[in-house]
């Protein structure tokens, strides 16, 4: 749909501009749900300062294809209007925005559900990998079982 976006990039994004683009020129849209993910300064269970920096690797080509598939699946499940997905790659610092998902729809239920669905599937199906810089050196982030469970609750099997 016009106004849809899937963008993998190093640069930051403007949350206000992206959210405005979800409904610009679309008077049938009555609801917008957005999610913004940030780089944290700690791991799960760790203290502040445990993560000094982060770098993100991805699989160019497959990333875009996987995200397009996820958006298409969301469209099959809910009556939504526009979907914009931005994911940053490269070097990031704590506090940086890392991912944006925005969904517009006629009513709030579809936008809320589709936004969460896209994030849950992105977490388990889009080929991104985080590497943290810690005081003890660099380490690849382990996948979390809770992310698999979040994707599985939608049915259809998160991988």
């Amino acid at each position: 749909m016009t106004g849809d976006l899937i963008d993998i990039r190093e640069a930051d994004f403007d949350v206000g501009a992206e959210t405005a683009a979800l409904t610009a020129g679309d008077p049938a849209a009555g609801a917008v749900a957005t999610f913004v993910g940030l780089v944290r300064d700690r791991n799960d269970g760790g203290g502040p300062g445990g993560v000094a920096a982060m770098s993100l690797e991805h699989y160019p080509g497959m990333t875009e294809k996987a995200l397009a598939g996820i958006v298409e699946e969301a469209r099959g499940r809910w009556d939504i209007r526009r979907v914009r997905v931005i994911h940053r790659v490269g070097d990031l610092s704590p506090g940086d925005r890392i991912v944006y998902v925005g969904v517009s729809s006629a009513h709030r239920g579809e936008a809320f559900a589709a936004c969460e669905f896209v994030m849950d599937y992105l977490k388990t199906r889009a080929p991104f990998w985080k590497k943290e810089q810690t005081p003890d050196g660099a380490r690849w982030v382990d996948a979390r079982e809770s992310d698999d469970q979040a994707a599985e609750r939608w049915g259809g099997g998160g991988r």
Partner: peptide, 10 residues
């Protein structure tokens, strides 16, 4: 064909 660890984006 690509091989990789479980993904950790988002």
């Amino acid at each position: 064909v690509a091989f990789f660890p479980p993904v950790t984006g988002g």
